[in-house]
Design a protein around this nucleic acid. Structure first.
Lengths: 199, 199
DNA sequence: TTCAAAAACGAATACTATTCGGTATTGACA
DNA sequence: TGTCAATACCGAATAGTATTCGTTTTTGAA
C-alpha cells in the first residue's frame, strides 16, 4: 500500500457534511455540496464513505450518544427522584428530539430514505433504549434490573422521541404550543415515577 | 371551457398510484410508473394533480379516516370499558400504524420528503387526535369534554403511532418481537383507564 | 530513484419530478 | 350540424440527483 487516506480529508468531509445537514437537512444536502465544502471532487467522497447515509450516521451516531451521556450526567446531578425523572423525559424530548442543530430532524429523512441495500442496523435505537434503562436503574432508582417495565418504558419514550422529531420536520413548528407537550411529558413521567416502588 | 377532465383518468391515476405505493413505498414510486399503470403519459398526471405528494395524500387521507371510523365502531361495540380501551390502543398501533397495505409506512417517507414549497398542513394529524378524544369521550367514557388529559393522551398516542410506523419502515420488522410492544400498549392503556373517574 | 497501489479527478451513467411546446379532442354555441 | 377555442394529452426537454468508471496523479516503501 503506497498511498494512504488522509485523515484531514476525512475530517473535512465530515465537517462540511455536518454544516450542510444542519442547514439543509439530509435529503437536500448533496454530495456535490459536501465535496465543495471539503475542497475535493464529489467522486472522491466515495473513497472515504460508501454512501451519503454512511456519512450521515458517522456524524449522527457520536452526536446522539454524546447527548445521551450528557443527559445521564445531568440526571444524576438532580437532587430528587422527581427532578431526575423530569430531566430524563424533557432532555430526550426537548433537547435531543427537538435539537438546535437539526441533526435529529435530518434523522427522520435519513431513516425514511433507507433502501434495503443500505442494510441499516438499528443499533442506535437499541443503544438509546438500553441507555435509558441504565439511567433509570442507576441514576433514578426505584427499579430492579430486568424489570420488564423498564424496557417497555424505554421503548415508549423512544417511540415518542421519533414522533416528536418527525413532527418538527414535517410541521417545522415545535408542535403544540398550547401546553399539550407539557402534559404529555407529565404522563410519561407519571408512568415511571408511579410504578416503581419508592426508594 | 370546452374539454373536461375525465373522472375515469383521475381514478386510474389514483388506482395505479395506490398499487405502486403499496408495493414500493412513496419514494420508490415514480410518476412514470403511476402513469404507465394508468395508461397515460407522465406529463398528463400533472393535469390532475400538482405533485406526487398530492397524489399520495389523495389516497392516504380517505384511507386513514376510514380506518379510524372503522376503529371507532369496533371500540363502541366492545362490552367493557377495558376492552374498549384495549381496542382503541391496539387498533391504532397494530392495525393502522403497522398496516398491511404499507400506506402508513409510505406516510413516513412522504412526511420526510416534504419541502417548504409543498406547504403541507398537518390536518390529518389534528383530525386523528380530535377523533381519539371523541372516541374516548363518547365510546369509552369516564372523561368530561375538555379534560386536558384527553388532548395529551391523544397526542401521546399519535406520537407513538409515528414512532411505530417509522420503525416498520426503517427496520422492516414489526419491531420488538419479545412482547415489549405489548407492555408499551399496556402502559398506554393504564394511563387512560386509570386516570379517569370510573363510570 | 523507482514504481505500483490507491487517492483524486472529470466525465459519464442512470435516475428522477416537473415543465414546456405543440397537437388533438371536445363541449358549447351558432 | 359545423365551428372554434379551451384544454386534455403527448413527447421531448430541463434540471437535478447519487453513484460509478476510466484516467491521471501522488506517495510511501523498497
Amino acid at each position: 500500500m503506497v498511498r494512504v487516506k488522509s485523515e484531514a480529508v476525512r475530517e473535512a468531509i465530515l465537517a462540511s457534511a455536518a454544516t450542510e445537514i444542519s442547514a439543509n437537512g439530509y435529503l437536500d444536502t448533496t454530495i456535490g455540496r459536501i465535496a465543495k465544502g471539503a475542497g475535493i471532487a464529489p467522486s472522491n467522497v466515495y473513497v472515504y464513505f460508501v454512501s451519503k447515509l454512511e456519512i450521515y450516521f458517522a456524524i449522527y451516531d457520536p452526536w446522539f450518544k454524546d447527548q445521551f451521556l450528557a443527559l445521564e450526567r445531568r440526571v444524576k446531578r438532580q437532587p430528587t427522584r422527581d427532578k431526575k425523572i423530569r430531566h430524563l423525559v424533557q432532555g430526550i424530548l426537548r433537547d435531543i428530539a427537538i435539537d438546535q442543530t437539526g441533526y435529529t430532524a435530518a434523522l427522520m429523512e435519513a431513516l425514511a430514505a433507507i433502501k434495503p441495500k443500505d442494510k441499516y442496523r438499528p443499533d442506535l435505537l437499541t443503544w438509546a433504549e438500553n441507555k435509558i434503562e441504565q439511567i433509570i436503574l442507576k441514576s433514578v432508582g426505584g427499579y430492579e434490573a430486568g424489570d420488564p417495565r423498564l424496557k417497555a418504558f424505554a421503548h415508549l419514550l423512544m417511540l415518542t422521541f421519533d414522533g416528536t422529531a418527525l413532527r418538527v420536520k414535517a410541521l417545522r413548528a415545535n408542535a403544540q404550543e398550547d401546553g399539550t407537550m407539557d402534559a404529555v411529558e407529565d404522563m410519561l413521567m407519571a408512568i415511571i415515577s408511579g410504578s416503581g416502588h419508592s426508594v
